[in-house]
Simulated scan of single mutants.
Amino acid sequence: MMKFEIQYDKDIYNKQMDLLFDLACKPKKEYYKNSQYLGFVLLIIGSILFFDRPSFFCFY
């Protein structure tokens, strides 16, 4: 009976995993990082507006 074996090369496997990670996760990571910065800026602007004129949000 013939047995077919493929030799395992750790370096090739690691390079492939790095490539797949860069293709799949890197754009999303950059997008969410930029979105987080935008969220902090909007939070600061909202806090400044609220503390500058707190009566703006009261309806009496």
Rank of each mutant, 00 (worst) to 15 (best):
L20W: 02
L42T: 04
L42K: 05
Q16K: 11
K10A: 06
L42V: 06
G39C: 08
K29A: 06
P54K: 02
D11W: 12
I12V: 14
I44Q: 01
Y60E: 10
S47F: 10
F40G: 07
Q16S: 09
D9F: 07
P27K: 01
D9R: 04
Q16C: 04
E30F: 01
L23H: 08
K26T: 01
D22A: 10
V41S: 09
L42E: 04
Y13I: 13
Y8W: 11
F40R: 11
Y60I: 04
D52E: 04
L42M: 14
F21N: 13
Q7F: 03
Q36P: 00
G46M: 10
R53Q: 02
D11H: 11
Y13M: 15
F50E: 03
I45Y: 02
K3E: 07
Y31C: 00
L38A: 11
S55F: 09
E5L: 06
I44Y: 08
F51M: 08
G39W: 08
L19K: 12
Y13D: 15
F50R: 02
F59N: 13
Y8V: 05
F51H: 02
M1N: 07
Y31F: 10
Y13E: 15
S47G: 13
I6S: 08
F4Y: 09
K15F: 05
A24Q: 09
D9S: 05
F4C: 04
F50C: 05
F56Y: 12
Y32F: 13
K10I: 06
F21H: 13
I12F: 06
Y31L: 07
R53T: 03
S47R: 00
F4I: 08
M2Y: 10
Q7H: 04
K3G: 02
R53L: 01
Y60P: 02
K10Y: 00
D22P: 00
L42R: 03
P54V: 01
L23F: 10
F59S: 12
Y8N: 14
D52R: 10
L49P: 02
Q16G: 08
K15A: 15
E30P: 01
L20P: 00
F51V: 04
S47Y: 06
F4G: 02
C25L: 11
L43S: 13
F21W: 14
D52P: 00
F40I: 12
I48V: 11
S47Q: 02
Q16E: 15
V41C: 05
I6L: 12
G39A: 12
I48Y: 08
K15E: 15
P27V: 01
F50S: 05
L43Q: 06
Y13H: 14
G46S: 11
K28N: 15
D11P: 00
C58T: 13
S35C: 07
L38I: 13
L49E: 02
K26M: 01
D52L: 14
P54H: 06
F40Q: 07
P27H: 02
M2D: 15
D18P: 00
F56E: 11
G39N: 10
R53W: 04
D18M: 15
Y13R: 14
K15R: 15
N14R: 10
K33G: 06
I45K: 01
C25A: 12
Y31W: 07
S55V: 08
P27Q: 03
D18L: 14
K26Q: 03
Y31G: 00
I45P: 00
F57C: 05
K3W: 08
S55N: 05
A24K: 06
N14F: 11
P54L: 03
L20E: 15
K28W: 15
K29F: 12
I48L: 05
D52Y: 15
F40L: 13
K29G: 01
Y8K: 07
N14T: 07
